[in-house]
Computed example of a mutant assay.
Amino acid sequence: MYEKNGERYFVVDGHIALWDARESNHRNVHGKQFIDCFYDYHENLSPEDVVWDYDTYTYYGGDRLLRDVFVEGYVDHAIFQPVLLKDFYVNGFGQTEEALALTRSHPDKLTYNHSYDPRYEEAGLQQLREDATRMNLQGVKLYTAEWHGDSRGYKLDDPWSRRYLEECIELGIRNIHVHKGPTIRPLDRDAFDVADIDIVATDYLDLRFIVEHVGLPRLEDFCWIATQESNVYGGLAVAMPFIHNRPRYFAQIMGELLYWIGEDKILFGSDYALWTPKWLIEKFVDFQIPDDLLTDYSQITVEQKKKILGLNAAALYDIEVPSGLGLTESTRQDGAEVTARAREAAPS
């Protein structure tokens, strides 16, 4: 929980990971390329005083995760969004069993989402069924640009992908998180295109599609899709760190998201350990859209920040919000007035 100026914020970090990118786990050169790209993002978009050394970054372990996220990071609950990358890492990039063990040890603080790849076809479908039972899955994280043999990506509306989405409905897995953001070396940029979100969101209304990284650098495409599709949400991981070194760009991202899709469908995510949540939360609570941009956007409110930082994700995952950390009547009214003004200006 974070508190400032008499306001208390219930925080759900919707995007964390526990990875092993040490050289001993590299299957090939692509394992090094991937973690080096991650580290470049970390080093160039973080405040200097929170930059990690490279060796720590390749593997930090569960104890440090718990400290950085919950003890120092203000987070009340966090959701694992793993990436497997079996073609690049001997034991996979995301550490399934270690993350799952942490979740079982701290069920009040952690939720574990797993991943699947529809290119494993029937065998993978059976694995998904087993994983859903063993891991009590409420959500999955998909990486449509992941390599698999000769394939360098897939579309969500591919026939086998549809089979898996239909199985998710049967299994009660409603939250489908999809990386649709900046490319990561050596993955292909176009394999992260957001267009297939539009198709499956229309066809599978029983599912909720959380577009991680809000489609960057395709923000406009994402916004046009998400404003039309009621079951499409935006995850702020990767967008968040621009609040530090590109605050005006971040203001434009938030302004567009609030204008098009509204504060009820935007979720905070630190993308730990690319970045640590502490400084992101502090800067976001202090954040205001610059005055000269208010000709195009409405100012962000405390109510909107509370929803984005935790209340929206809590609703998607049935996470209990302690008494007093929800919305007060005054903030509801203030936020409703701002939202109404924005909606009046929106195209019909």
Rank of each mutant, 00 (worst) to 15 (best):
E3H: 00
G6E: 05
G6Y: 02
E7D: 00
Y9H: 01
G14Q: 10
I16H: 12
D20F: 10
A21R: 06
S24N: 12
S24Q: 15
S24K: 15
R27G: 11
R27V: 05
H30F: 11
G31R: 07
K32N: 12
F34H: 08
Y39N: 09
Y41T: 10
H42A: 11
E43S: 10
V50T: 15
V50G: 03
W52R: 11
D55N: 12
D55I: 06
G61H: 04
L66Y: 14
L66N: 03
V71N: 10
F80L: 08
G92V: 08
G92W: 08
F93I: 07
T96N: 08
E97D: 14
E97W: 11
E98S: 07
A99Y: 06
A101F: 02
R104E: 12
S105R: 13
S105P: 00
P107D: 04
D108Q: 06
L110M: 00
T111L: 07
E121R: 01
Q126I: 06
L128N: 01
L128C: 02
M135P: 00
N136I: 00
L137V: 04
Y143N: 07
G149V: 14
G153R: 07
D157W: 08
D158K: 10
P159K: 08
S161R: 06
S161A: 15
R163E: 11
L165H: 07
E166G: 06
E167K: 12
G172E: 09
R174H: 15
I176H: 04
I176A: 08
H179A: 00
G181M: 04
L187Y: 13
R189T: 11
D190A: 12
D198F: 07
V200T: 02
A201R: 01
L205F: 03
F209C: 09
F209E: 03
H213G: 06
H213D: 08
G215F: 02
G215C: 06
L216A: 07
P217T: 04
D221K: 07
Y233P: 09
G234S: 13
A237L: 08
A239L: 14
A239M: 14
P241Q: 14
P247K: 13
Q252N: 14
G255W: 07
W260G: 01
G262V: 11
D264S: 13
I266F: 14
Y272K: 07
A273P: 15
I281L: 13
F284N: 13
D286P: 08
F287H: 14
D296K: 13
Y297Q: 10
E303D: 01
E303R: 13
K305R: 10
K306C: 05
G310A: 00
A314E: 03
A315Y: 01
I319Y: 00
I319W: 00
S323L: 05
T328W: 00
R341K: 15
R343D: 15
A345H: 12
S348L: 14
